[in-house]
Design a binder for these strands. Structure first.
Length: 185
DNA sequence: CGTAAGATATTCT
DNA sequence: GAATATCTTACGT
């Protein structure tokens, strides 16, 4: 079942939780989402906190679109734009469980272990072929394909990773027991 | 096993 | 100039 655009018209934390277990494909390549982080409007750790810039313009655009940006000068990160009351919310996709077109992902990632193919934002983006060209693209049209979770998933919440602004806010969500997380359970 | 360094775009001071 | 929602490689235990 495809995820409706309305799903993203709620606060980032609910979207982040709801995405765990969903299937994501980009050009047929992808798998099951096992790790997300929420970045809400007004969150000091969010790129949207300091206002609109050229880089984060997609975050203030329509709900249900992609926000893709470069981090540390060399890695890409994939986010889904959502909204609560104020614009500027997004959910960072941190890890997926590889299921479709494994050969393509292995080739893009240099033939490393399957467990490490998509276990982190930068790795995931490289494996799926994400780059700045699809920043702002709608998630309900090709090359994107999003499907609802097959059933309820056991979810573990914890503090977000790699940030310094609000490190204790428990807005990181993982599929419990998955072997494909950026950090073991 | 662990810690450390390097790559380097974009934004803010 | 400094910091950042990261990953890989190199080197020391």
């Amino acid at each position: 079942m495809t995820i409706a655009r309305d799903f993203f018209a709620q606060d980032a934390v609910r979207v982040a939780r709801g995405l765990i277990g969903a299937e994501l494909r980009v050009g047929g390549v992808g798998g099951r989402i096992v790790e997300t982080e929420a970045y809400d409007a007004g969150d000091p750790a969010s790129h949207s906190f300091a206002g609109v810039t050229k880089r984060n313009a997609a975050m203030f655009g329509p709900v249900g679109h992609a926000y893709v940006y470069r981090i540390y000068g060399l890695h890409w990160c994939l986010n889904f734009v959502c909204a609560s009351e104020q614009p500027g919310s997004a959910v960072l996709i941190r890890a997926i469980e590889p299921l479709y077109e494994l050969e393509v992902m292995r080739a893009r990632r240099g033939g490393i272990a399957d467990r490490l193919l998509c276990s982190g934002p930068g790795r995931l983006a490289q494996a799926l072929g994400i780059d700045g060209a699809i920043d702002g693209s709608p998630l309900d049209q090709p090359p994107f394909a999003l499907s609802e979770p097959a059933g309820p998933s056991p979810i573990v919440a914890g503090p977000r990773i790699g940030i310094t602004k609000a490190p204790t806010t428990p807005w990181r969500f993982c599929l419990a027991g998955s072997r494909y997380l950026s950090k073991p359970s």
